[in-house]
Write a protein that binds this DNA or RNA. Sequence first.
DNA 1: GTGGTCTAGACCACC
DNA 2: GTGGTCTAGACCACG
Lengths: 125, 125, 125, 125
Amino acid sequence: MITIDKMSRIPIYEQIISRFSNLIALGLISPDSPLPSVRTLSMQLAINPNTLQRAYLEMERMGLCYSVAGSGRYVSKDARTSLVAMQQAELDKLKEYCWELCDSGIEKETILNYIKESLFGGQQK
Amino acid sequence: MITIDKMSRIPIYEQIISRFSNLIALGLISPDSPLPSVRTLSMQLAINPNTLQRAYLEMERMGLCYSVAGSGRYVSKDARTSLVAMQQAELDKLKEYCWELCDSGIEKETILNYIKESLFGGQQK
Amino acid sequence: MITIDKMSRIPIYEQIISRFSNLIALGLISPDSPLPSVRTLSMQLAINPNTLQRAYLEMERMGLCYSVAGSGRYVSKDARTSLVAMQQAELDKLKEYCWELCDSGIEKETILNYIKESLFGGQQK
Amino acid sequence: MITIDKMSRIPIYEQIISRFSNLIALGLISPDSPLPSVRTLSMQLAINPNTLQRAYLEMERMGLCYSVAGSGRYVSKDARTSLVAMQQAELDKLKEYCWELCDSGIEKETILNYIKESLFGGQQK
DNA sequence: GTGGTCTAGACCACC
DNA sequence: GTGGTCTAGACCACG
């Protein structure tokens, strides 16, 4: 269901958050459906339960899920709504990054064309 | 000449390298012109000399500058050439980032249009 | 007759006790009238029978109800009397909470006025 | 500077957050002044560094402080502003609690008078 | 020295 | 079984 890269420089808990965010954004996990328990998933991923717990806590803070003591953890009803706002924030970061490249002397057209080719392989209008 | 943001999550030494790279790329520092000494600049920026030293060493490794014993540190003749290769690396990072956004469920067109508007204010075809 | 919020951070068995206490305090359940059986109510609320059992046992311990083997569980004659003492305990908790707010730097007058307005809508002296 | 109660049912990390919030709210810690390091304070309080780390992370999330890698952790400039908003939330919780007491059959006047006496010892207008 | 992350394993309350 | 909290100790990057 989920895979992580332990060698990555990106913290494991962030990878987990990212993976679940994707699954939710793509509709592969429905609202109110249960998330894997801390114990089982941490064993599956071969990571420490605390690391997963941290990821889940962060996801709760983001409004992506909620926990019911003694029962389990479930996807929030408005998880996708929360993700939309976060995606906008991501786009803003991308915008910032583009401007930094401009400042470092790369032409705007160069940047735009490069992105266009990257995303569409050059065959788009 | 240079400013840094100590509160940023980006390491100070990376910020310094980035600032000097920009100055060089934009032609605001000429080849063979001297860089501020570790001692004076570290005092100006109120940072640890070791941090600045690390930045300068990294810049030497990148081919952006060279040091002359007993004299000082100077911008390399081919510094701008070196920067071109680095800019390509930056573009690759941008590409990576765009793909991450795609994975998280944002439409390619949305990304491209957002960047286009950001860079050109919407007045470009 | 009774509703609970499984998402609440308040334990379910405490919610149940609280709901029944209210019903008794307001006179909506008379002394010696029967309480729903563990089996039926736990099914209605879709909770674990153990959880409801725990709530009932706690209520017996508080003197709110008593169980008759083979018959069922009934509201105590002096349930309302028992509740008066418990209400005092609640008031003490409220008092504690007010003092905490004071400690965190909120003015006493601010607290009192806020409560006054909340309870009486401002139309009381 | 700070004391905690290990026997309390309130989590240690919440106690720490509460203590620092008070110090900031009362102006006993100025903006941009450094907080004790994780290592030193955790030793002073005889708690695990991770527990304190968690408290500090939470405080960062609240906007009460910020961390500078390799340097230390400092009180935010607008920490007191952040606290004001949080205090309002606390007052709202108090209001909720008062209404619950009403629902359980306690008279509004009883509640108000009790709070008044608690806060002012009864000698206030 | 600092903060950030992770592991390993424990105890508790709740269901 | 579940989540919530805590301890003990490790490694890393940064300054």
